[in-house]
Design a protein around this nucleic acid. Structure first.
Lengths: 146, 146
DNA sequence: CAGCATCCATTCAGATACTG
DNA sequence: CAGTATCTGAATGGATGCTG
């Protein structure tokens, strides 16, 4: 992949999000959603799918499978269903033979990418520090148990 | 938990992050770090530890275990080690009997929380849409295979 | 007190085979 | 074409017991 879709529109959205002031007290439902969202985005495939759909606009199942390198058909189906359920993606079934199903990002799905821009930028800014910390830790002989 | 540490300083940091313009071409190393970071934060415990350390300043192992509700000792040790390795946390061993180990957030660790503010705010703004989408999906009789 | 080592149940993802 | 169903190995995380 080539990273988050950093076009101008996405960046504007990311900045608008950061300008908002969140309430002092966090709604438990929001908390649960955040945890779920982060977990979803971390699941390795969601972000990749988000990205290729953002780039291509609309894709069929097989086209997606080709674009998202390494994904199994099972994971593609599963991830797309979850994204559809969360309103990130629309699934359009054309009643033809052979079947044809189109997937497209929704506004909601596109803006989720923007929400993660902050993490992306942070990583860029702090990559050196993290790497240095890791080198120091490993050189000290310490290990992380598994 | 009560949500991300949304104090003024954290918010300023989040906004500063969002104002930066990322490069057009993403460094593969940054990409790998982003994926790792998101995965780490999604692992359920890292964020919680980040939060209680942010609130309390410095805590001993057992105090952390008490503050982070539900965490097993194994997961606490493992997560703390990973955070230490990544430079998010400092671990100070006092050579006394019984042993005493203090954990404290680093600047880097604190700023990571800020990087995720965008996701938090996004979730607050879009919770209703996601819930509506899920209700519609579930009502349609569709399911997500497991 | 602050861990490490070990065992075990559950989850998960990949491969494979089959279908409307 | 766009899936579903099933099997299996691997990774996770919790519980328990032990130690300097």
């Amino acid at each position: 992949m080539t990273g988050l879709p950093f076009d101008e529109r996405t960046l504007r959205e990311a900045r608008r999000i950061a300008q908002r002031t969140p309430p002092a007290e966090t709604d438990p439902k929001v908390e649960a959603l955040v945890t779920e969202l982060i977990g979803r985005v971390a699941d390795k495939w969601t972000m990749l799918i988000l990205e290729v759909l953002h780039q291509h606009g609309e894709l069929r199942f097989t086209q997606l499978a080709r674009q998202v390198e390494g994904i199994s058909q099972k994971m593609l189906t599963q991830t797309l269903r979850q994204m559809e359920r969360d309103g990130m993606v629309t699934r359009t079934v054309h009643p033809v033979i052979p079947p044809r199903v189109d997937y497209r990002l929704t506004e909601l799905g596109a803006s989720l990418g923007a929400a993660f821009c902050g993490v992306w930028i942070w990583a860029e800014e702090n990559l050196d520090k993290v790497e240095a910390a890791r080198r120091a830790f490993d050189a000290s002989g310490a290990t992380v148990r598994r």
